Computed example of a mutant assay.
Amino acid sequence: MDECVAALSRVHSFLHNELVERDADIIRLHLHACERCMENFEIESTITEMIQRSQETAASAPATLTARIQAMRVTTRR
């Protein structure tokens, strides 16, 4: 059951390709082995696809904003 909780808590990150490959592989293996989690994943995947299709193409952030955010990320990682 703990594996199910862990897998489902990271399903959104998995759907958005935000996990490192090792973590994504762990989620994939669990989903293939657990029918209940796979059903939940399929529902979340369908909802995510519907949301993405309903949104207009997002405008890109201004280059200056992107640069400022990247600078902040580098600063906070040290």
Rank of each mutant, 00 (worst) to 15 (best):
E3W: 06
L29R: 15
D23L: 09
A58N: 00
A67P: 00
R22Y: 11
E39D: 11
E3V: 08
M38S: 14
E49N: 11
F14K: 03
E35D: 09
T66M: 04
I27P: 02
E49P: 04
T66G: 00
A6P: 04
E44I: 05
S13W: 02
T57Y: 06
L29H: 10
A24V: 06
R22P: 07
I43N: 02
S9T: 07
D25A: 14
A7D: 09
C37I: 06
D23S: 12
E39K: 08
E39C: 10
V5D: 13
A24H: 05
S60T: 14
C37S: 13
A58P: 04
T57F: 12
R28D: 05
T57P: 08
H16P: 02
T66A: 12
L31R: 03
D25Q: 15
A33G: 04
D25R: 15
E49G: 03
R10W: 09
R28Q: 08
S13M: 07
R36Q: 09
A7Q: 07
I26A: 15
S45Y: 11
C4T: 14
V5F: 08
L19M: 04
H16R: 15
V5Y: 10
F14H: 05
T75C: 07
C4E: 12
D25C: 11
L19S: 02
E18D: 02
M50L: 13
V74P: 00
V5Q: 10
Q52E: 15
C4W: 10
L31T: 02
L31F: 04
A33C: 04
F14N: 01
C37T: 06
C34E: 00
I27M: 08
E3I: 06
C4L: 13
H16Q: 14
T64E: 07
I27E: 05
M50W: 03
Q52G: 04
H32I: 06
E44M: 11
S45K: 15
R36F: 08
V74L: 01
A58T: 08
E3M: 10
E18F: 03
R73S: 00
I27N: 04
P62W: 02
N17G: 13
R28L: 09
P62H: 10
M72L: 15
R28T: 05
Q70W: 00
T76C: 14
E35F: 09
L29N: 13
T66S: 10
P62Q: 05
R77F: 05
A6M: 11
A71C: 03
L8K: 11
R68T: 10
S13H: 05
Q55M: 07
F14P: 00
R78E: 08
H12A: 09
Q52L: 13
T57I: 15
S45F: 13
E42L: 13
R36N: 07
Q55P: 00
T64H: 14
L29W: 07
N17V: 10
E56K: 09
S13R: 06
L15N: 04
D23M: 06
R77I: 10
R73F: 00
A59R: 12
H16C: 09
S60R: 14
N40G: 07
S54P: 01
E42H: 08
R53S: 03
E39Y: 04
A59I: 06
H16S: 11
R68V: 01
C4S: 05
V20P: 15
E21Y: 09
R53N: 10
N17R: 14
R10T: 10
S9C: 08
R78A: 09
E18W: 01
A33T: 08
T75Q: 14
A59W: 09
T57K: 13
E56H: 07
D23P: 06
